[in-house]
């Protein structure tokens, strides 16, 4: 099962700086050309801003306070899920260390040491924004970074994917997008010829993202 159909990176002012169609097939006939992607990105950006205003104060306060208090679908702490373990997506978070090390064996992790980009859970920096959007045809996951850049994963809705609990799916997507963020830190931010907030045209980043997503 493929986890990702399209991957977008939206900069902090709502501009689409990177898009990648990961399957190449025509599963999502709606959003095809680049212009529609641009509109989608900026729409998502505004929705994000609106939603964060709509979030009830009690949830925001609970979130910023301690991690045990959280709303229905908003989780502070995201557990570590190694790539390739999404086959056991429905079996919960307890045995998610089985596929550990799959990334490090055949892959160069750039400036990262060890078998994976990270080895433990992490805090989600999403503060009252959108984590996931579900439609009849698509599901969209958003990974919020501290710098304001957002990593967006678009996936077609499939029964296989739906079998897992929604929180597990969000966690898996967050893990994938966090790895993409790590790649972004290596291959985009360390490129001397990249202008900040501008579209990313980078063969190394492209290749690294392709190999990363292939493991999911």
């Amino acid at each position: 099962m493929k986890l990702a159909q399209a991957l977008l990176i939206i900069n902090k002012s709502g501009g689409l700086i990177y898009k990648k169609d990961l399957n190449g097939a025509n599963n999502n006939p709606g959003s095809k050309n680049g212009n529609e992607y641009l509109i989608f990105a900026s729409t998502l950006h505004s929705v994000f801003a609106i939603v964060s205003q709509l979030t009830p104060k009690s949830i925001q306060l609970g979130e910023s306070g301690n991690s045990d208090v959280h709303g229905d679908d908003i989780i502070e702490h995201v557990p570590y899920i190694p790539p390739g373990s999404n086959d056991e997506l429905g079996s919960g978070n307890s045995n998610n260390n089985n596929g550990k090390g799959t990334l490090g064996n055949n892959n160069n992790l750039g400036s990262y040491h060890g078998t994976d980009f990270f080895s433990s859970g992490f805090r989600s920096w999403s503060r009252g924004g959108v984590r996931q959007i579900e439609t009849d045809a698509l599901e969209i996951y958003v990974y919020q970074t501290l710098t304001g850049a957002r990593f967006v994963l678009v996936n077609t809705r499939s029964p296989a994917a739906q079998s897992a609990h929604v929180i597990t799916r969000i966690h898996t997507a967050d893990n994938l997008l966090r790895r993409v963020h790590c790649l972004y830190g290596d291959y985009v931010m360390k490129d001397p010829f990249y202008a900040l907030e501008m579209p990313i045209k980078n063969s190394l980043f492209d290749a690294a993202v392709t190999t990363l997503v292939a493991q999911y």
Binding site: G110, S111, D186, Y187, K190, D191, P192, F193, N202, S203, L204, F205
Partner: peptide
């Protein structure tokens, strides 16, 4: 290793 493109660097 993080710089795409040619060999100038």
């Amino acid at each position: 290793q993080f710089i795409p493109g040619g060999v100038s660097c």
